[in-house]
Amino acid sequence: MEVIARRPETLTKTPFTYCPGCLHGVAHRLIAEAIEENGLINQMAGVAPVGCSVFAYKFFNFDMAEAAHGRAPAVATGMKRARPDMHVFTYQGDGDLAAIGTAEIVHAANRGEKLSVFFVNNAIYGMTGGQMAPTTLPDMKTTTSPYGRNVEDIGYPIRMCELLSTLVAPYYVERVSLLSPAEIIKAKKAVGKAIQYNRENRGFTFIEFVSTCPTNWGIDPVKSRDWARDNMLPFFKVGCFRDKGEENVQGVEK
């Protein structure tokens, strides 16, 4: 019998520390598979964020650095500049990337750093206990927006793909979702493309995953995907925003 799907060698044997049903693990696996498929295990390095995926440096089976909150793109910039023969990615959540690390992500993207950035958007701060994120939806209740996110007071959620697509330098920007096997298969293609472009040192690549937080949303893992589909996808539309490697980019559905 032939093994057709198994834990990739680019993941360590350490079990993930995420809650049951948390889709961080799916994003990890897609990245790990793309690195394995591109034959990059010996030249790859990643940067972990602060947040639920703070321990990502324990899960990827190659050199990893753990950055201060929001600073992963700056740390990755330093790593890539120091060792241009290596390939570097960051893995960041919405608080890390879209709140405290806004300057770092915008400027790494604007410089066209030859990095891949994987951004997990689940509209909430998970690790600290379900506080409001920059991506929290209008009227969504969190522990720091107990009456719902009041957009008059705190503004609307930030759409990072759209924001970064206004810059000239980024090479590839796509938003994908992880809410069903079919969507995960699409996401796998996008992740594979980002890592391929990274391998070819083409430029800055950015993948946003629309994900879930069953624990802090208080919804079971299966239903939380439906909640994300109904509530997140209308605001965070999946699609390719920029692909300098393809002539015809479909763009996001309006």
Binding site: V3, I4, A5, R7, P8, L11, Y18, L23, V26
Partner: peptide, 19 residues
């Protein structure tokens, strides 16, 4: 039927599929 849907969706990479 070894469709790998389970593997694809598993967030803990706990599944192996053989054919």
């Amino acid at each position: 039927i070894a469709c790998k849907m389970c593997y694809m969706t598993c967030p803990d990479v706990a599944i192996k599929v053989e054919k």
